[in-house]
Amino acid sequence: MPTVEQNLILWGKPDGWKDDGDKWSVKWGGTDLEWWASIFPRIRKFLPASTMLEIAPGFGRWTQFLKGFCEQLIAVDVSPACIERCKERFASDPHVRCYVNDGKSLAMVEDRSVDFAFSFDSLVHVEADVIAAYLNQLGKKLKPGGFAFLHHSNLESYRKSLWLPKAIGRPQPIGADAAKPAPMSRSLWLRRRLQSKLTDWGLVNTFDNRAESMSARIFRESCDAAGLDCRSQELVNWNHGPSLIDCFSVVTPRDGNTRKPSRLLKNPHFMDEAEWARRIAEFYSGGSRD
């Protein structure tokens, strides 16, 4: 259950970004392959965009691509180290502006100014209260007809099967959701509790530090409260088997009082994209003139 403070400690150390975060794209065979094979096809219809907002850019792993599709790009991150690196990395790009925030606010962004907001492989680490805060902000910052593509955790939907403890920001279960999960062995129960305690202390998380209070359902509820329509959600696996612990959500400001239904896609083969991108790139690089 990482808090904003724990995430700042975990991701705010410059020595953890020696390769600008490219190590997290190794399964694709490189950051450029992950962008073109898995990210760009999902957001291409929103590009180009005049004014773009990137939430939690880290050391600019995706900023380097996004900046070529806009007239102005605003990058906002809770980590001063990340923002300093982005300022250094994109110093020759005057249309890229970088700001440190408090992990929830977008006060430095003008209302109704953003055509497209983006976050990938970052907000998966923040809990439901942080996601709700950012959605409330996006409800004010997005232009009418603007869109946001946000990558967040879906781990809360596995709460029963994983026996996850109540997490910060998670609504209390009611009705059928309040039923106790099926019994598990005492050794497994103790193992889960130990893992959860270590995660509470910011020491370990066996699910790639995914936020335990966040799910696709909770995201939709937060969108509704923020006056946003959640247009689509793709549930995907991430590194560990077929469990759909991540979600890609597309949102836009609500037009009047009409709520449009959200489309849902379950994709347990997301990591196959990474494998195929890497294998194809390796195959053709073997036929180069080098």
Rank of each mutant, 00 (worst) to 15 (best):
R231L: 15
D255Q: 08
P242V: 02
D208K: 08
E282R: 06
T206G: 14
S222D: 14
L244M: 07
W276H: 13
Q172C: 01
L228H: 01
A277L: 06
V250S: 07
G175K: 01
D224T: 13
H269P: 07
L244N: 04
G175V: 00
L198F: 14
S213M: 06
T206E: 12
S213V: 03
D224H: 14
A179Q: 11
S213R: 03
S232I: 05
R220F: 07
P171K: 00
D229R: 06
N257E: 08
N257Y: 00
D272S: 09
H269A: 11
V250N: 04
S185W: 09
K266I: 02
G175D: 05
C223V: 13
T199W: 12
C230G: 07
N267F: 12
S243T: 08
T252W: 13
S215W: 03
M214L: 14
S187A: 15
P181M: 04
R192T: 02
C247A: 11
N267I: 00
V236I: 15
Q195T: 00
V251F: 06
R279K: 13
E212L: 14
L188Q: 09
A277R: 04
A182K: 04
P183V: 11
I174S: 13
R231C: 15
L264N: 05
W201D: 04
E273A: 05
L228Y: 07
I174W: 10
S232P: 05
G175H: 03
A277H: 06
T206I: 13
L190Q: 14
A182G: 02
G169W: 14
T252V: 14
D229W: 09
P171E: 07
F283D: 06
A176D: 05
D272W: 08
D246T: 06
